[in-house]
């Protein structure tokens, strides 16, 4: 029987092959969704999908892009924003 705490759909069901040859059902945590541009909604590049626990142990430079509005806007949206600022 499946333990009560494993019935939640926040857990992923993964079938794993054991060294003896049998297959076992294991429950794993899901990764968070990838970061999206706040304006146009496309996936941002260079930002890994990390849980807060793993993110705590990685360096800041590995979690963002070295550009203005790094983890917030995509490169195209940033260009449009700066152009509008300059022309205003």
């Amino acid at each position: 029987m499946v333990a009560g705490r494993h019935k939640s759909r926040t857990l992923k069901r993964v079938h794993k092959r054991m060294p003896g040859g049998s297959t076992k059902l294991t429950f794993q945590k899901r990764k968070p969704k990838s970061a999206k541009c706040s304006k146009c909604g496309i996936e941002l590049k260079g930002i890994p999908r990390l849980n807060t626990a793993k993110a705590k142990n990685t360096a800041k430079s590995k979690k963002t892009v070295a550009r203005a509005y790094g983890g917030v806007l995509c490169a195209n949206c940033l260009r449009m924003k700066l152009k509008a600022q300059a022309r205003a």
Binding site: A68, R79, A86
Partner: peptide, 10 residues
Amino acid sequence: CLKIAGRDAG
């Protein structure tokens, strides 16, 4: 000029 792209954008 104003730089639009790259590490030094803005």
